[in-house]
Nucleic acid binder design. Structure first.
Length: 446
RNA sequence: GUGGAAGUAGUUCAAUGGUAGAGCACCAGAUUGUGGAUCUGGCUGUUGCAGGUUCGAGCCCCGUCUUCCACCCCA
């Protein structure tokens, strides 16, 4: 393309807008979190699945329409097929279910931790490539399944080490009952979108927009009354009673919420859950309970874990009735938030427990023998592979946040011992056996 | 996709349209000798990229890319 050959012939290293590299300092905590989550999901009897990154565009767009169309990365493959990158893990899961439900025992509980892609304009905590941690239960539509997902959300945040979060939950069915009661159900999609903005633009703006939508001041006021809580601290059941009354009395949806809340109370985890009727979720496949999760210190970051019940999703691909409920943790957004909060979760990224110094390369096999013995005891041991002076080796260990160094003096080589240094306190212990050193390190670290 | 702001060394920041600089970091050497000190030297830049105006552009103009913000939507 260039007119003249230039002296510089290297290609500029760069990544696409909204896409990112992960350095060890970020990838280590990310892996640690996903490992914890995976163990945690499995403790609930959830199993992992995987689906292709690329699908037929028609499969992914099946129901979405509108906004999803604009956000999805799609193109023609080399065989002229119309293909697209998955923009979430839920829609491919619905396709997966339709294809394999006969091979699965229902109720089926799965989790899926992987990357998804959306062609949105990036902002802080919002990327074009990001990781979702999904967990869903399909084949059952009851309060017990709804509760189990909520319960897992709560324990997931504690397993991840995240503090100060709030789950905001609402019920799409209850809201629709309310809209039907006021004869505005036809406009539910527009109303839902408007209602969702309450947190951002405030009551007055929302009221004006609702008035515009319904052309009826009374109806607009009624909707605003439904979605806003006079008292932020209003108890869950009080909110539920109020909304039930506004919807024309008890119905299956309010009963469902009542049961779910009783389970939350019995489990002793109700404090993290608040009834927020302004939560509606933009995606229109939700039919029951819906929820979003906010970090109390960074509410403007948006939800870091959202989901709900979808009873008809698989019906795009099969006549089989496959109700589901699930939730998705936005790992990259969460990590960005934790970084902004200066959380220790994203600060500790040590590459190893022990740095084995290389002070005399003729002793390399001795180093290797010690390293192998230590690794057998579960320690992470990294031998310094360059033959440099000790200052450089100390610096290398420090940069990699390695807490211990093993150094072999001439005496150590003679006597088959080693010197152990705690790099944080700078304490040294001489003439230790390998076993003794392992004991000291293990005691200090675990 | 639309609108706004920004982009200078690895990093934090300077430089009236007139020769691109400082601290920290990094590298080499000396000194020290089982590291945080000191000394000497060095490097890092086609000022995001590519054009235009000008005798001359980091600075002005156009385009483009990226980041941040708002809309939209969402994890």
């Amino acid at each position: 393309m260039s007119k003249e050959p230039k002296a510089k012939s290297i290609i500029e290293p760069r990544v696409l807008k909204g896409f990112r590299d992960f350095l060890p300092s970020m990838e280590i905590p990310k892996k640690a979190i996903t490992n914890n989550l995976e163990k945690h999901f499995r403790s609930y009897g959830f199993v992992p699945i995987d689906t292709p990154v690329l699908e037929y565009t028609e499969v992914l767009l099946g129901k979405g329409g509108g906004e999803t169309d604009k956000q999805i990365f799609h193109f023609k493959d080399n065989g002229d097929r119309d293909v697209a990158l998955r923009f979430d893990l839920t829609v491919p899961f619905a396709r997966f279910l339709a294809q394999h439900h006969s091979e699965l025992a229902l109720p089926f509980k799965r989790f899926h931790i992987d990357k998804v892609w959306r062609g949105e304009n990036p902002q802080k905590g919002r990327y074009r490539e990001f990781t979702q941690c999904d967990f869903d239960i399909v084949g059952v539509d009851n309060a017990e399944a709804d509760f189990e997902i909520l319960s897992m959300m709560d324990s997931s945040f504690s397993v991840m080490g995240v503090k100060n979060y709030q789950f905001c939950i609402a019920h799409r069915g209850l809201f629709n009952a309310f809209l039907a009661h006021h004869g505005v159900l036809e406009q539910s999609v527009e109303i839902l979108r408007t209602v969702d903005k309450l947190r951002k633009i405030g009551k007055d703006e929302v009221l004006a927009l609702l008035h515009e939508l319904t052309s009826d001041q009374e109806k607009a006021k009624a909707i605003l009354q439904y979605i806003s809580k006079e008292d932020e601290q209003e108890p869950f059941l009080t909110t539920l009673d109020r909304l039930t009354a506004l919807s024309g009395g008890e119905n299956p949806f309010s009963e469902r919420m009542r049961t779910i809340y009783s389970y939350l109370c019995n489990a002793g985890i109700e404090a993290h859950f608040t009834f927020d009727p302004s939560i509606t979720r933009g995606l229109d496949y939700y039919t029951g309970i819906v929820y979003e999760t906010f970090l109390t210190e960074l509410p403007h970051f948006g939800s870091v874990c959202s989901g709900g019940r979808y009873n008809d999703l698989a019906s795009l691909y099969t006549k089989e009735k496959l109700p589901g409920v699930g939730s998705s943790i936005g790992l990259d957004r969460l990590l960005a938030a934790l970084e902004e909060l200066g959380s220790p979760l994203v600060a500790s990224a040590s590459s190893a427990d022990v740095a084995l110094f290389n002070t005399d390369v003729t002793q390399f096999s001795t180093y290797d023998r010690i390293a192998r013995a230590m690794r057998k005891h579960g320690l992470r041991v990294s031998i310094y592979l360059l033959n440099k002076k000790q200052g450089a080796q100390y610096k290398w260990a420090e940069t990699n946040a390695i807490p211990f160094a093993v150094i072999l003096s001439e005496d150590d080589v003679q006597n088959n011992t080693l010197t152990l240094k705690n790099l944080r306190t700078r304490e040294m212990q001489n003439a230790l056996s390998t076993e003794a050193a392992i004991a000291v390190i293990t005691k200090e670290l675990f």
